[in-house]
Design a protein around this nucleic acid. Structure first.
Lengths: 344, 344
DNA sequence: GCCGGTGGCGTGAGCGCTAACAAGCCGGGT
DNA sequence: ACCCGGCTTGTTAGCGCTCACGCCACCGGC
């Protein structure tokens, strides 16, 4: 019936002006109520709230972002993996960020090379992300980061401990020392190591901790078996180790490698921990149910994530400006895969 | 020196007008170039591109979202877990969405209850997400969804197969049939089942498939052991099962349960697969390195994720409007944990 | 009575972009 | 010569919000 009225778009989300009209105030007052501005009469505040409720009004974040030039968005760059460490980290970070009212946008990259990382970071900058977290566990990823413009705060998780810049990571070396020392203290002459991919900082740190502990103890440093993080490669390494009677203690760079080693030992008839002791790293939830239950090193991913978040937020708000580094120390979880060496 | 000139904000991201000025065109032409609009002279296009390059211009997504009322943002609601299934799903979805040029924003909820889910969905609506994916593997999550306003496309992954609405899921029942039949065909009289949490659809579907297959084969349906998804609870269930000599075949609702069962059997001196056969579900990467390597059912999470994405996008673009359901059939991966029953 | 301060609110401009229209230009048909 | 239509480009008006003001009423002190 009404075909003369001013152009009223219908079926549109209510905007601030709609709320304002209904409440009989200006849009600015609505904005004040929304943002908790103090100088608003209580009665007005209530009227506005009622109008918001009645209209089912929800503020438009895009408009706010445009007007303020700031967003509540945190970008994450992660690789496409289901490895336990990175996934837990990511989940914990998302949860923590959500709790603090931020929205997190994840960008997965297939490979951690220069181009992919740069593109992902660039993408987040387009979104005007307030801050960016990069889970950069390899050298290539880290280098890519070196060139990223610094007009938006970036924190690196799991990055190169040697590099400049803000980063949060777990002290791989300390963890490896824990593992190695535990084996040495059980009476083993030395400890063999099955390491992760050489270009991962985690792997390098664990290797370094292992090696130094051995050296400090005056133990011989046996050759390391290079592997990736998979149970498959742990199995292959385990097969070789199983053939060498002098191998009585193995430190695996992660729990999945340890799983593969466990199976190789089992197949070759070498009992764990009777003949050879094994220690892992990560403390995946299943580690307690391996055969035998695995002694392992537990990095606290929750702590890493919350720490990364708080460092990032403090840089976003401009509190800290220099480069901060935060290193989380892991702990040893003792189970049944370590024993004294067989009495020859 | 220049203190009379018009207000020129410095240190600001270049905007479209800056590019336009440099290229000697209007901002609209820049917009056309950016959006691949056809009617732009090649020469102009090049000039604009050069200006973009020179200024390091990046479009402001917030402004575009505001102007168009549409965003390139896909919201995901997931629970805070590192379970293999959900994590893989999420990773695969993020990767696929990224590849199609979408931004994915993940909102983790601590528990899958009504309030959390509703709040998470609401949050994404505030962001003007173009579409929302909810990973809703339990009844409570699913119910919460029933009340969500439908002005933004929502697809449910892993939700209630019985419910109305658009969903993508794996055919749990078919998977369970595969597992059960495999055991039956190996010669076992019947198959025992260690199930997942009762309020998970996945668990219910697997249980149903197992039970029906047994019934159809005329086999006795033994009581089921209720567990959660953890290796710990699998271990507890396995301990009980190990004591019962009539148990020769077990179908575990997931691989981690199977791992716990494997260990319980091992501890109790029952050989797998010599005395009892075990089949899992999920095909976690380590399953091939359990002792013994686990026969399991593999749901293809990549396919689920890409399917979810394409269903979502087709609804976003308004192509499909009714409720679509897409069910992915899993496959059986045979390894060494299944054999004929011991000849009593 | 006047005056400065302050709480409470409205006004206008502008964030960077897209959509809709308008305008100029060129070539071909009549 | 004229007109018409397509290509190319510019102009204008928002999208929904915040920020910087400015206005008005009221209060206390002189």
């Amino acid at each position: 019936m009404d075909h003369t009225s001013p152009p009223v778009r219908v079926n549109r989300d209510p905007a601030m002006t709609d709320v304002a009209r209904l409440a009989g105030v200006s849009h600015q007052t609505v904005s004040r109520v929304l943002n908790g501005h103090p100088n608003v009469r209580e009665q007005t505040r209530l009227r506005v709230r009622a109008a918001i409720e009645q209209l089912g009004y929800r503020p438009n974040r895009a408009a706010r972002t445009l007007a303020t030039g700031k967003s509540q968005l945190l970008g994450v760059v992660a690789q496409n993996s289901t490895l336990f460490g990175p996934s837990s980290l990511l989940a914990a970070f998302e949860l923590a960020a959500t709790a603090r009212g931020f929205v997190v946008s994840v960008r997965r990259v297939r490979v951690l090379d220069h181009g992919s990382i740069a593109a992902a970071v660039e993408h987040h900058r387009e979104q005007r992300a307030a801050g960016i977290v990069v889970i950069a566990p390899t050298g290539a990823a880290d280098e890519a980061l070196a060139e990223v413009p610094t007009d938006v705060p970036v924190v690196t998780v799991d990055g190169d401990p040697e590099r400049e810049g803000t980063l949060v990571t777990v002290d791989q070396e300390a963890g490896a020392r824990l593992a190695t020392r535990c084996l040495l203290e059980a009476g083993h002459e030395t400890v063999w190591h099955v390491s992760g991919p050489a270009d991962w900082f985690d792997a390098a740190g664990r290797l370094r901790g292992w090696q130094r502990t051995l050296e400090e103890a005056g133990a011989e440093v046996p050759p390391v078996s290079q592997a990736d993080w998979s149970a498959a490669s742990g199995y292959r390494a385990g097969l070789m180790l199983a053939r060498m009677p002098e191998v009585t203690a193995v430190f695996a760079a992660n729990d999945h490698l340890a799983l593969g080693i466990l199976r190789a030992m089992h197949e070759r008839g070498r009992s764990v921990p009777g003949d050879v002791s094994v220690v892992g790293f990560d403390d995946v939830p299943e580690a307690a149910y391996f055969i035998p239950p695995l002694t392992t090193v537990r990095p606290d991913f929750d702590t890493v994530a919350t720490e990364a978040l708080s460092v990032l937020l403090s840089r976003v708000s401009g509190e800290r400006t220099g480069s901060t580094r935060s290193v989380i120390t892991p702990t040893l979880v003792e189970r049944d895969s370590v024993a004294a060496p067989p009495t020859a």
